[in-house]
Design a protein around this nucleic acid. Structure first.
Lengths: 243, 243
DNA sequence: GCGAAAATTTTTGCTAACAATCATTCTTGG
DNA sequence: CCAAGAATGATTGTTAGCAAAAATTTTCGC
């Protein structure tokens, strides 16, 4: 897993007179991490980021502090910032937190959903299928997360939507850290079942399917396998030293 | 509603060599706000806070930025920071978000709870009753929030616990803004019913009671009355100008 | 006396620069 | 040749100070 460098974070200037606001910078870094462009462990050096965005270091420190507060960036005193490498415990907490809220979000969203919302969901799944057919992995990851956020948007609670956005971003780091090659984490077949529950107005069904979907994502990761293989290697290496 | 000043935020130094870390400063301000010591609208001037804590302004700016990210402090460009005054919409979102997660948290907590946890809850309710009998309003508010956080702690998901802590802090601002005098917002009788559900291991019952408890808190506030009385005054004042 | 404009003060936004810490490279002794 | 220590460079942590914006006070004209 090579660490990618944050070279292309700067884009068209969004603020007044071409100056990026702290919020803009935060959003850029956040999005890059959410889209797995900056994998876990990527060093984020203040001076480099400040040059990329053309601002002073103090601005970057502020942004880093906020990113750290959401848990997607880790600050080490005197050593700087890096994209968070989630531990197994953290990973499991992210999934548990998602299960805790996404069932309820789905239920609320079904009760709020208009015909237009359902059409948006359909359109979204078509785009997921397109990306899947094109083997556009980055696009799939983005669209998968966005499907969940679309549901949260339909549920119409900004606090929950933002909390979920953070959880999804943290989960994208989990996926990069613990994913098994060739085994996609988020299935658009499962998304389609959820959409069907929405279309028939089945709030409890949607909630149940959502939780099962999240269970399935978690199962596709390999926390357990990784720990076992580490123990085996250590045993083997100790054995060969003693014989 | 007078605005209190942040004079007494500094306390015993907690960091190495008596220097407070950013985290310490964040925690101090957060706690003061959560305990309603700094009411909605309180101006937080950088220079004043920096003098109180004996650090540079840049440190304070970092802390303010993070507090603003949780929504409990509001930053206005070129005008500074103040404790957030929640709008009615925000207030309702806080309650809706709490209902969305606290039912699930209560359910999880019942399934995790040990005898020791139940004893801690009982002890906590005794302290609530003490505070109530002493008419210690500040203590009641703190302990009420802490009861909810104790349940989240028993549920053992740090992400949810922290999100709930933020929601509770935001709710304490809502209560200060919209509370009816003489009408306490959080009833320890309702807490006792919740504890009973815990003691008999009734996860669904606990979840249901928790949601009803939150409904009841929300009902005790007067979003509606306030809006209605404003409309009446405007109508009356316009009527007297035309006659 | 009142309102508007000007002047002054206060506060925020931001940067350059220095101190402190860590990481890397070089040197030295065994 | 290797390990330990020293030297050097890179990076973070922090502050002082200036520019810009907002708030407050003073002045002036009617």
């Amino acid at each position: 897993m090579p660490e990618r460098q944050p070279h292309d974070l700067a884009g068209p200037a969004e603020g007044q007179d071409g100056v990026l606001s702290d919020e803009d910078i935060y959003a850029r870094l956040y999005t890059a991490i959410a889209r797995q462009q900056l994998p876990p462990g990527t060093r984020l050096r203040e001076d480099e980021i400040r040059q990329i965005f053309g601002v002073s270091r103090a601005r970057i420190r502020t942004v880093f502090s906020r990113l750290a507060h959401t848990g997607i960036v880790t600050l080490e005193p005197n050593r700087g910032a890096s994209v968070t490498r989630p531990s197994v415990k953290e990973a499991r907490e992210v999934f548990a937190a998602r299960r805790a809220i996404e069932g309820t979000i789905a239920r609320e969203a079904v009760q709020h959903a208009t015909k237009r919302d359902i059409a948006r969901m359909r359109d979204h799944l078509m785009r997921e299928r397109d990306a899947d057919n094109r083997r556009d992995r980055t696009g799939m990851i983005r669209l998968s997360g966005e499907f969940h956020l679309l549901i949260a948007e339909i549920a119409d609670n900004e606090l929950l939507r933002r909390f979920l956005a953070d959880l999804i971003t943290r989960e994208s780091l989990v996926i990069l850290t613990y994913e098994q090659p060739g085994r996609p984490s988020c299935s658009n077949h499962e998304h389609e079942h959820i959409l069907e529950a929405f279309a028939r107005g089945d709030a409890e069904g949607a909630a149940k399917l959502m939780i099962e979907h999240l269970d399935a994502i978690e199962e596709r990761l390999d926390f357990g396998d990784r720990q076992r293989s580490e123990i085996d290697l250590a045993t083997i290496l100790r054995g060969s030293a003693e014989s």
